[in-house]
Nucleic acid binder design. Structure first.
Lengths: 364, 364
DNA sequence: ACCAAAATTTGAATCGATCCAACAAAGATG
DNA sequence: CATCTTTGTTGGATCGATTCAAATTTTGGT
C-alpha cells in the first residue's frame, strides 16, 4: 500500500496535479495565476488535487524563467555582508532603498564578497533585475564585473568619473567648501585634513601629484573644495597636512599621531567622513584635547550617529536616504538611459566646531 | 545592411553563440561551466563568439531552473523592509546571519510586507532555499504562509509553541527570573512590568486570564520568570501592574503614565525589551526621576545600544549574533528534521539598576 | 596500418512554469 | 436552423540553461 500517495521522492510539479485533476497543464496553471477565467467546478477540482498531493504552489523558479523579471534589486559591495547592518552610512542608504522597494513591492538581495573570485561569481549568479553598487574600495572592479551582466546598475558615491555608468552622488566640491569656509569664518587658520582613500591600499601624508592622479574623484573633489575655501581666506594650502586614511580606526589614529606631532598643530580638523571625525573626537578626548575648545572637528556625510556623539558633530550632511531612494528608483524605472545625478549637501553646525583658542592648544 | 548583426531586439542566449561558433550548446555550456574539459582551440572560438556578440554569460535564471538551488536564504518579517536596518535587535541578528552566509558564500534576500496580500505574494515568489522568520507581530500568519512553500524555515524568538516548526530562541523564564531576582536582591519590593504584546493589537494593563491565554509564549514566559522570582522573595505578584505595550514609544509612554499615576509608584521597572527600557529611561529623565536613584530599570535583549545609553542599561543579554548564526546554519545545513534550540541568557549589570531610594520617589 | 583507450563533442531530455493560437461547447441572434 | 458570440479548455512552444549517455575524434602502442 501507499505506492502512489507517498510523494517521498521528488517535489510535485504543476503537471502532476494537472494529470491528477484530469485537466491540461494550461488550465492547471490558470487555476493559480488567473483563477477567475476557469470554471468554478474545474477550479475546485484542481485545488482539491493540489491540496491532496501536497502541492506547494507554482514554483517561482519556473515562473521566473518564463516571466523574465525577478522583482528584486541587488545591492552589492566588496565589503562583507555585515557591512549593510553595521555601517551607519550604509544603513541610512539601505533605509532609503527599502522605502522605494516597499512602495513597489520589490525585494532586496544582498550581494557581497571580499574575495575576488567569489565576488565575481556572486555578481554573475545573483537573481536580480539590476544592481546598486556601493563603490567603496575596489569600486572599479565591482563596476566592471557588474557591467558584464548587462543589467541596469547604478553606482553610489561616484567613485570615478566614467560617464557611461549611471551614478548618484553629491556635490563634493561644494560640500567641502562649506565645511572649510565655516571653520575659516570662525577664525581658524591652521588646518589638517583627514582624507578618504585616494587610491586602493595606501595611507599616509599625500603629495600634490597624488591628489592630481587620485583614483577616487570623490576624495579629490572634497579636497578641491577645502582648498578653494582656504585660498579665498588667504590660507596657504601648501602648508596643510593631508593624511590619507582607510576610513577606519587604525589609519585615522595614525594620521592624528602624525598631524599632532607637528610643532604647530592645527586648530581645526576637516574629516572626509563622519566616521573619521568621530574617531578623531575620541582620540582627542583621550589626550585631553578639548573639542571644540582646543581643536574643532568637522565631518562629512551626516549619518544619524553624528548627532548623538559627544560633542555632537558639525558635518556636511548628504541627503542619504534620498540617495538610496533615487538609486532604487533608477533601477526600478530603468529606461535604458545613463542617469547621473548630483544632489546638494547642507552644512549642519553642531557643537564640535567653534572659534580657535586664544593660545595655541597642547601648550600646557 | 545590418540585418542579422544588429542584436537590438532580445538578449543573446547561449544557443546563439553556440550556433555562431559552430558547436553544440552542450559544448558552449561547458565552455562557461567547466572550461577545462573543452579543447583549447574550441574554447577560444566560443569565447570569441561570445565576446563578439556581447553575450552576458550564462543567465542565472536558466541555470537556476536546472540546478534547483538558489544559494540564498530569505529573511522575512511583517514589518517594512527598513526594519532590518533600523531595529537594533534585528540588526544584531542580521549580523549573525551575515556571518554564516559569508562563510558559505550564500546570499541574503530580504522579504517583507505589512500588507497581508503582498506578504503572501512575496513569500510565495521569493527565490530562496529557505526562510528565517522574524516572528514579531503576526508571527503565526507568517509561519502559515511560509509553511505553504514547503521549504526549510526556522522561526526566531519562539513566538508560539508549535513543535512542528523549527525555532531558535532563548530561555525566557530563566532570563526573566534573573532580572527580577537582581532587583529583589538590591532591595526592591515595589515593581512594575512593561510587557511585550501578549496578543495582536491590544495594549493596556493585563489581567491574569489574559496572561494565561497569551498568544505569544515568549511574552508569557518572561512574565512567568518575573513572577517566580517575586514569589521567592515574598512579593505579592497580584499587586504588580503589568502593562502590555507594542514595543514602541507611544504605548510605552502610555504605560508609564498609567503606572506612575498610582499612589505607590514602583521603585523598579522590568521591561521586556531594551527598546522599552530605553524609552522608559528617557521618559523618567524627562520627568526628573533619577535612574537608578529613584527608579531602577532592567531591560531584556542585550542590544549593543543598551551599553551606550545614559545611564547604561542593566539587561538580560541574549546571544543575539549566535541566534542569527544558528538560524542561518539551520537553513544552510537543512537535514529534514525539526530543530528547536533554546539558548542561555546572561544578566548584564550596568548603571540603570541600584538599591531603592530610602524615601519613596516622586514625593517631592 | 590497425585497434583499444582516452579525450572531446553531440544532441536529446530535463528543470517548472506561462502564454497563446486554436478549438469546443454553450448561448444569443436573425 | 444557421451563424455569431461568449466562455472555457487544450496542447504545443518557449523561457535559458545543464546534464549525460552515446557518438566521434585523437592519441598511443605495436
Amino acid at each position: 500500500m501507499a505506492s502512489s500517495s507517498e510523494s517521498n521522492t521528488r517535489p510535485i510539479r504543476l503537471a502532476d496535479i494537472a494529470k491528477a485533476a484530469g485537466v491540461s497543464h494550461g488550465t492547471a496553471s490558470n487555476v493559480f495565476s488567473r483563477p477567475e477565467i476557469v470554471r468554478e467546478e474545474v477550479r475546485e477540482r484542481v485545488k482539491a488535487a493540489a491540496e491532496a498531493m501536497g502541492y506547494a504552489g507554482p514554483d517561482p523558479k519556473g515562473r521566473l524563467l518564463r516571466a523574465g523579471k525577478v522583482n528584486a534589486i541587488g545591492v552589492a559591495t566588496t565589503e562583507p555582508l555585515s557591512y549593510f547592518f553595521d555601517d551607519p552610512f550604509a544603513r541610512a542608504i539601505m533605509a532609503g532603498i527599502s522605502e522605494a522597494c516597499d512602495a513597489t513591492g520589490a525585494g532586496i538581495a544582498l550581494v557581497s564578497a571580499g574575495n575576488q573570485e567569489k565576488l565575481a561569481w556572486n555578481i554573475q549568479s545573483a537573481l536580480v533585475d539590476g544592481f546598486i553598487l556601493f563603490c567603496i574600495e575596489g569600486g572599479s572592479r565591482l563596476v566592471e564585473l557588474t557591467r558584464e551582466r548587462k543589467l541596469p546598475f547604478v553606482a553610489l558615491e561616484l567613485g570615478f568619473d566614467d560617464d557611461t555608468v549611471s551614478a548618484i552622488g553629491v556635490d563634493n566640491v561644494a560640500g567641502a567648501r562649506l565645511a572649510a569656509q565655516h571653520l575659516a569664518e570662525l577664525g581658524h587658520r591652521r588646518f589638517a585634513v583627514l582624507a578618504l582613500p585616494f587610491a586602493d591600499g595606501s595611507t599616509g601624508l599625500v603629495s600634490p601629484e597624488k591628489v592630481r592622479t587620485a583614483l577616487y574623484t570623490g576624495t579629490r573633489d572634497r579636497l578641491v573644495g577645502y582648498f578653494e575655501a582656504f585660498s579665498r581666506y588667504g590660507v596657504d594650502t601648501a602648508g596643510i597636512p593631508v593624511y590619507e586614511t582607510e576610513n577606519d580606526e587604525a589609519s585615522t589614529r595614525a594620521g592624528l599621531e602624525t598631524i599632532f606631532a607637528s610643532a604647530a598643530p592645527p586648530t581645526a580638523i576637516l574629516a572626509m567622513s563622519d566616521r573619521i571625525a568621530m574617531i578623531a573626537i575620541e582620540w582627542l578626548a583621550a589626550r585631553g584635547i578639548a573639542v571644540p575648545g582646543d581643536v574643532s572637528v568637522v565631518g562629512f556625510d551626516g549619518v544619524p550617529d553624528a548627532a548623538l556623539c559627544d560633542p555632537p558633530l558639525t558635518t556636511v550632511a548628504q541627503p542619504i536616504a534620498e540617495i538610496g531612494r533615487r538609486a532604487a528608483r533608477t533601477i526600478l524605472d530603468f529606461d535604458g538611459t545613463v542617469r547621473r545625478e548630483t544632489l546638494g549637501v547642507e552644512l549642519v553646525v553642531r557643537a564640535s566646531s567653534g572659534p580657535p583658542p586664544k593660545t595655541a592648544p597642547k601648550t600646557a
